[in-house]
Amino acid sequence: MEGKICVGVDVGTHSTKVAILRGGEILATRVMRAQDPEAETPEAALRAMLAEAGLSWKEVSFTVATGVGRDTIPFAQRTRSEQLCHARGAYYHFPQARTVLDIGSEGVRAMRLNEKGEVRDFVCNSKCAAGTGAFLEVISEVLEVSIGEMGELALRAPGREMVSSYCTVFAESEVISLIHRGRSKWSILAGVIQAVAERSFELLKKIGLRPQVVLTGGGSQNPGLKKALEEMAGEEMWVPPEPQIIGALGAALWGEVLTISP
């Protein structure tokens, strides 16, 4: 089994992620933005990554695809749901993980894990985009702050504005009106993040919120959101390195399992 190569591909709405494992260790990862017209296809990306590592396509033992577009990867032998992949990816980094919250761009999901890292239960957000990463993206455009710096800014907010709208579109204009009323960008951000955190926290409560809680997905990189969630839960939450590739990593880890018993 030493040195076996497994690949995970996570095809999301906004980006595609690839992870390569060799002998259970992360060998390479890559993120391709969907909006970027120059972006490589998953297959080309994988070829390039393998070439960089001095490996050939034939050496890959197993490829697993996950994410909303998981059926669009012809070279994957199997597919696995995001829930199972995020859980496995989070558990890889933190064996203490019992609750995993994945804040993706359009989907938020909470998973409950047992000691072996198996998913025992999960809940997902509804058909409305309120409280997802995409919601934050819309607001980041309006406030002209990058998604990356958003959380940091919010942490330094002196106060918090109430953002009450459910609908992303209405929230957008609520935010615009707050700007026009001269409210500080920081406080507005803090309000937006609070609103998003509340939505995610509802899912955490539904699933039972057992420590250790691990955050994954793009949203987990937002320190303001993490802090807001920690305050609501009264509980420290952990974020793995490169949280956005956890799904792809989990898929690759599933590849290891599935090569044994496909």
Partner: peptide, 14 residues
């Protein structure tokens, strides 16, 4: 299928 501005946006992108 989706009339939510956010979801429809990604459906359209896809």
């Amino acid at each position: 299928s989706s009339m939510c501005a956010v979801f429809a946006k990604s459906e359209v992108t896809a």
